[in-house]
């Protein structure tokens, strides 16, 4: 579904990603693991071109999404980001009502009908397993929700534009264990409909939820395989050292 070919990325003169090659399967959870500063978040943000916002960035190589290079000049970045949605490290709901948060994406893409919006809002909130908690206060400010609820709201907001792919950048690192497990369950239930790529610092999380795992170190992808294989018999010494906790 997403094919990465020989991807290199520089921040100014510093090379942050070195020749990444990767095939990301459809309707599965792919986890990106590695120590801080290894380039996994940078890589994730390249997939929907969120890195475009950073000045002085340079990218070579290709990322093909549905057979099309996302860096080619005729790609509409806004449409790309509609199809490849994103959930951020810290929950970032807009300072508006819960309803308006969810409706933000659909409205951006031209849906104005009240009935349709109501329908999308309910469906997205249900898909993100937060409908029962917020259905009575859709008009209240989203900032009044707890951190875990806010993050599920952000997932619902991303689902509202019906993306194909969901990028999650350490979505649970700012949350308590109970909220974390809710988000993990949610991710597992979402992979029936969506392709999920998740960056995580938490090895157990990767074990619990992922189908494929890629291990990054110093901007290189060291190993990429089925989760079971990586965690039971990694082929690279560095992967083994990392997952057994010898560094990181």
């Amino acid at each position: 579904m997403i094919t990465v070919k020989d991807l290199c990325l520089w921040y100014g003169n510093t090379q942050a990603l070195h020749h990444i090659n990767m095939d990301i399967p459809e309707k599965a959870i792919t986890a990106l693991i590695g120590p801080s500063g290894c380039g996994k978040s940078t890589f994730l943000k390249t997939l929907n071109r969120m890195n475009d916002l950073i000045p002085g960035i340079r990218i070579t190589g290709e990322v093909c999404y549905n057979e099309k290079n996302i860096f080619s000049p005729d790609v509409d970045v806004n449409m790309l980001r509609k199809e490849i949605g994103m959930v951020f490290q810290k929950p970032n709901p807009f300072p508006m009502s819960i309803y308006d948060n969810i409706a933000y994406g659909p409205r951006t893409h031209g849906i104005t009908s009240r009935v349709k919006l109501d329908d999308i809002v309910e469906r997205s909130l249900r898909d993100a397993a937060i409908w029962d908690e917020v259905k009575d206060r859709l008009r209240k400010n989203a900032l009044g929700l707890s951190g875990g609820q806010q993050q599920r709201l952000c997932i619902a907001r991303a689902l509202a534009v019906s993306p194909d792919v969901l990028l999650m950048d350490e979505p649970t690192s700012a949350l308590d264990p109970i909220s974390t497990s809710k988000i993990e369950e949610l991710a597992i239930s979402l992979k029936e409909k969506y392709t999920i790529i998740i960056v995580t610092h938490n090895m157990q999380q990767a074990v619990r939820i992922s189908d494929k795992v890629a291990f990054f170190l110093l901007g290189e992808m060291i190993e990429y395989n089925d989760a079971e294989t990586i965690f039971s018999m990694p082929s690279d010494k560095r992967t083994e050292d990392y997952i057994t906790g010898r560094f990181g």
Binding site: M50, M79, L80, K82, P95, Y104, R157, A158
Partner: peptide
Amino acid sequence: YREGAFGLGA
């Protein structure tokens, strides 16, 4: 907030 909006294709 800006990232959130961009992430939704705004």
